[in-house]
Design a protein around this nucleic acid. Structure first.
Lengths: 147, 147
DNA sequence: ATAACTGCAAATCATTTGCAGATCT
DNA sequence: AGATCTGCAAATGATTTGCAGTTAT
């Protein structure tokens, strides 16, 4: 997916444009710059990572603006937000990524992604049993690597 | 379980005593008071709830002490900690409660507990596939009640 | 006696907010 | 033009920490 991120980026840029139009929000250079940096990344990042990366690419931007726009990208479903541990929240691009869950290795901080269909079965059962509509979920396993 | 919480409390009091002895930590009245108030509760609570309840029962205690000792009770596995939403963390007694997971209804804030054996199957698979030992997990579904 | 604990107030740290000036439409 | 946005700096709010006085062992 990193191979043709230019084409990918054209797509998410369009998704963002449509979202902004539908909501009467302005198309600022900051928004596209943030989106582009995020879609260049290959893994999870926090606000500081993103800020540093943008400054390294000569894009001056404040943290407040990053926070504001991560919220916007979240609403546009272009990113996902996680709280693996205390401290900063972490984010990841979501557009070409299928839903997955995470194992956090607590000694190293490493995060493993996995996908297990049984989680969808649990979701389906819950919806029927409690007569609810489930919109999202968060599943984290915490463990350590075997010695 | 609320019916004979006095007997239950004798048990957890003993568990705490043993934990403190094993770790060379002091048996302060605050620790037992916090434990007792928690085991009177029938559902999730946050630091503020606990503080208010203790003061209502004429036990003067500072928030710092509550925070310190919730950490200790966590290590003693006498309580569990959750972060259902942003803001304050929430806790619950864990000694007589079997492991369960949660559905959070995002419109009302209501929290439903459930237990599904398939989560243990997922855990088992992950341990084998990644050669890891999983110590805990957190599973939250977010949804709304059907209209 | 003495190491651990409590409680206050101050510090921390991620995130949010107020607002003045800049910028999309 | 006019509402939205950005960016600074200050505010927030949950949690942590420093430290002086207290207490369990």
């Amino acid at each position: 997916m990193a191979l043709n991120y230019v084409k990918d980026f054209e797509i998410v840029r369009k998704v963002l444009s449509e979202y902004l139009e539908e909501n009467g929000q302005r198309k600022t250079p900051e928004r596209y710059a943030i989106l582009e940096e995020i879609y260049k990344m290959d893994s999870h990042f926090d606000v500081e990572d993103l800020h540093i990366q943008m400054r390294a690419n000569d894009f001056r931007i404040s943290r407040a603006t990053i926070y504001n726009n991560l919220e916007l990208l979240l609403e546009a479903k272009l990113i996902r937000k996680h709280r693996f541990t205390k401290g900063m929240a972490r984010y990841e691009k979501s557009y070409f990524n299928s839903q997955h869950d995470h194992v956090i290795l607590t000694d190293t901080g490493e995060v493993i992604e996995f996908c297990d269909p049984r989680i969808q079965h649990i979701k389906k059962t819950l919806q029927e049993v409690f007569n609810i509509t489930i919109e999202s979920h968060s599943l984290h396993f915490y463990g350590i690597r075997q010695k």
